[in-house]
Write a protein that binds this DNA or RNA. Structure first.
Lengths: 181, 181
DNA sequence: GTCAGATACTAGGACATCCATCTAAATTTG
DNA sequence: CAAATTTAGATGGATGTCCTAGTATCTGAC
């Protein structure tokens, strides 16, 4: 920390790159309209905004998780198991709840297992299936990671609580119309 | 198309996976609150919603671009060049406008160049720098890809125009506070 | 009961993103 | 003007996501 102009706990979100002169998405929106694509310009801006917001939040989350040696994808698997009643779920269920491809689950579980955070067990009733079980180490890491994320990312996202609620509601409509639930 | 219950041009967004019984993000939000993390539960839901919205839109965009043999990352490079006055920009500028790492630009330009959609030229005034120039083929593809995306994704995102405007405005605040512009 | 079709998971490949590092060239400093 | 610093790009490595098979196993129909 250098300048003491801010309060003691005034945590900022420092830009990784120098600030641009203009909002690149607003600029693209102008170009779209100027080319006669006005009917699509708002949708383009919304989609692009979401792409960038994803990038911003993912970078913050990964920065917090890096010292704990997990990634967001693996953290999500840990939390799903953490909330499950028996601390274990079949691969297939993990994929459908997290809305990712089976192969992504295989990948994440491979690495979590190598780190001794989860364990693969045969499914007692279905020999095709594999149960993934949280180890005590995995449970502990899930708790530490959640504490860190809550503190450093989720409690203050840089948006007003009103904006946060709006986003959850609006994107909930999107997810529903996309067939998520 | 099977059931004729919808209008002739009623384009749907078919889910890739079976619909879940409950909204997984709402479920996570409940778990967060139940574990005493209420102060972070809304932020968690917002961040997770953005992650999923990104995934949904990226999948739609990539599906439209696939027949044209480009990806969204490469499409963005093409459009940046398309809008530039001289149809050419230094690598560095591309990275800062698209807000991605230099290495991502190198990667995208490598592939675009292999497809003869752009060309690398020495920068006339700075021998460290490389100019990336749009070829006629690249310009044509940019136009065809934009027409397809406007038609199949951006004009109808599955959100109301009110919701689209809200998203752009709210995430604009986020991008600003993150130091984008 | 047997066999076709569906389901669960793994393997290998294509892409994109970031990080750390390296080389070359421009800019700043003393 | 020479040395230190900064900047532009490229490389190699790690991750994550999806896609296309391929294998093993379960289900259901005849």
């Amino acid at each position: 920390m250098s300048a003491a102009s801010n309060g003691p706990a005034a945590k900022q979100h420092p830009p990784a790159a120098p600030r641009l002169a203009a909002d690149p998405i607003a600029e693209a929106h102008r170009q779209w309209s100027a080319h006669g694509w006005g009917g699509a310009s708002d949708g383009m801006a919304a989609v692009t905004s979401i792409m960038r917001a994803h990038q911003i939040f993912l970078a913050r989350v990964e920065a917090v998780l890096r010292p704990l040696q997990v990634t967001f994808a693996r953290y999500e698997v840990l939390m799903l198991l953490y909330f499950s009643k028996r601390g274990a779920l079949p691969m297939r269920i993990i994929g459908s709840r997290l809305q990712v491809h089976q192969t992504s689950v295989t990948n994440a579980v491979d690495r979590l297992e190598a780190a001794r955070l989860v364990r693969r067990l045969p499914h007692p009733a279905d020999r095709r299936a594999t149960l993934v079980e949280l180890t005590p180490a995995g449970r502990g890491l899930a708790e530490r990671a959640t504490a860190a994320l809550n503190e450093e990312v989720f409690t203050d996202t840089g948006l007003s609580s009103r904006a946060v609620a709006d986003i959850v509601r609006t994107l909930g409509q999107l997810r529903r119309s996309a067939g998520d639930f």
